[in-house]
């Protein structure tokens, strides 16, 4: 291949990739606000399910803040008439075949778990996916935050999905720990 030929083809390849990059930038500028908006509304919907009719404020976000455990994605407060009633922990742990993201609501006054919701998972259908069902999640209700939760001890695992069960239990434990250290009065 001749020298100017090499330069020519390199420039052409650079030109093609530049056009591709610009088109990706263009699509991204359209879709990224939609993605952010739908994720925010989805989370707000889950907040409502745990602490209905409250005002929510995100006080910790792992995108900016790093001091908490890396499993904690965000922490939000729920308040009624300006008074904080509870904390909402969005956490993730690695399950069997995916990251299991769960939202844990803790009541401030009596330091008890209000509700646990698994918001995102792609575990094995029929096994790990049962972690989203009330049968498993209702076991966490009213657990005290100073209780160490453990599969087999005080939580019954999902049959055939011990790893997923462990993942959710770990998420809850991380949240309870952080609550005890920072927000318990």
């Amino acid at each position: 291949m001749k020298k100017n030929n090499i330069i020519g083809t390199s420039l052409l390849l650079g030109f093609i990739t530049a056009i591709l990059a610009v088109s990706i930038f263009f699509v991204n500028s359209i879709t990224s606000p939609i993605i952010a908006y739908s994720e925010a509304t989805q989370l707000k919907f889950y907040y409502q399910e745990i602490f209905p009719n409250s005002e929510y404020e995100v006080i910790y976000n792992s995108d900016k803040d790093k001091e908490k455990s890396p499993n904690i994605l965000s922490v939000a407060t729920a308040s009624n008439n300006g008074e904080i009633v509870g904390y909402l922990y969005l956490t993730y742990t690695t399950g069997y075949s995916s990251d299991v993201v769960s939202l844990i609501g803790i009541n401030k006054a009596d330091a008890k778990v209000v509700k646990v919701i698994v918001t995102k998972q792609t575990e094995t259908p029929g096994l790990g996916s049962l972690s989203t069902q009330p049968k498993f999640l209702d076991q966490f209700l009213d657990k005290l935050t100073n209780e160490e939760l453990k599969v087999k001890d005080n939580i019954t695992a999902i049959t055939g999905a011990t790893i997923t069960s462990d993942a959710v239990v770990n998420s809850v434990n991380v949240s309870l720990d952080d609550f005890n250290n920072n927000y318990l009065n």
């Binding site: 291949m1 083809t9 990059a21 990706i24 699509v27 879709t31 993605i35 739908s38």
Partner: peptide
Amino acid sequence: AIRIPAYIGIIAALVTIIEMLIHA
């Protein structure tokens, strides 16, 4: 001479665009 990188580039860009659209 540059057809393979050019094809891969085009395919990768299309996949990224489709991925963002599906995500949204």
